[in-house]
Design a binder for these strands. Structure first.
Ligand SMILES: [Zn+2]
Ligand SMILES: [Zn+2]
Ligand SMILES: [Zn+2]
Ligand SMILES: [Zn+2]
Lengths: 167, 167
DNA sequence: TAAGATATGTTATATTATAACATTCTCAAA
DNA sequence: TTTGAGAATGTTATAATATAACATATCTTA
């Protein structure tokens, strides 16, 4: 475990964690994964990935676009959506359906259905992978003869720091 | 239990179920609920509710609008969105985040966080309310000190009839 | 190097949702 | 029964999110 705790699956990243480590780690993992698969993590895609990882709060496509447009002219919606599609296709980021926004995956490469706890105050999303939760879904689906293709689990609420801040 | 089985929470409505019964039951329940609460289920709201209930597949706001506009002129986006907001506020319908669409609630009045199995082939959504699933989420949230406000559980896949149809 | 495949640029448009203000309707108090 | 306040709806405009379609550039590999 790192001295300066970086974001881990199943926990809220500490307020003062070293986010540079998060980004660096995510980039390393993404590069490795793409190399293994012969997928091209181009400059543009890498940059979009970095922008998505700029915090642990999901980011909207047009936010990404605005930031991208500052550094690269001719950036238009397809520019960012295509990069997002690539990243999503390789499981490097997740889409948060209830927010129309995107967030970096904390465990790329591992098969998992993103499960998220999302703070409605600070926006931070914690990716979890609760086997009980998953098992409950699988079991119920099986009982009804339903063949699962994709799971969307998004729980909105208040993270511990934000609860403290309100009381 | 009805002779002609109507849609029940926790199951896929049969292909040949009497959907008129579903709609009639839903309308009765909505009327009762609104009466209890002193909420006004106006003509417009009731009509939007009926249109949402026109099938068990979630319907987009603009689909509703197109249909509404046939019968009522001057129907514009706010017309339908306001009705949807009202219905949602009273728990009479749910929004399916992963589809940007709306579906009737099978158990209005009862506290529950809509959990859905949604068929990617025919569109049918089955509302379930699995206590284990709910418990798993609550437990994990508690362990992380997360205060839940809203849960979004949407599982996409193939319903039994659609699986049969493909094989 | 040339050809094909992949990625990006560019323009236009589709889809979903809300803001802001005007008008009409409802219901109860005067 | 009036009338006035609040609620609901009408109306116009625009914001926010996403994709289609085609042109150009870049990469890969034979
Ligand atoms: Zn971090
Ligand atoms: Zn927070
Ligand atoms: Zn039905
Ligand atoms: Zn189906």
């Amino acid at each position: 475990m790192n001295k300066t705790m970086t974001a881990t699956k199943g926990a809220f990243p500490g307020v003062r964690h070293d986010h540079g480590d998060c980004v660096a780690g995510a980039l390393r993992a993404a590069e490795e994964l793409c190399a293994q698969r012969g997928a091209r993590l181009t400059k543009l895609r890498r940059r979009v990935f970095e922008l998505v990882w700029s915090s642990h709060a999901p980011v909207g496509a047009y936010d990404l676009l605005r930031r991208l447009a500052r550094e690269r002219d001719g950036a238009a919606p397809p520019t960012v959506y295509r990069a997002l599609d690539f990243l999503r296709g390789h499981g490097l980021i997740h889409r948060i359906e209830s927010l129309n926004a995107f967030v970096g995956c904390c465990a790329p490469g591992l098969a998992h259905a993103g499960q998220f706890l999302i703070c409605s105050a600070c926006g931070t999303a914690a990716e979890i992978d609760d086997p009980r939760l998953d098992a409950a879904i699988e079991k119920r689906a099986k009982a009804l003869g339903f063949a699962i293709q994709r799971k969307t689990i998004e729980v909105e609420g208040l993270c511990p720091p934000c609860q403290a801040r309100r009381s």
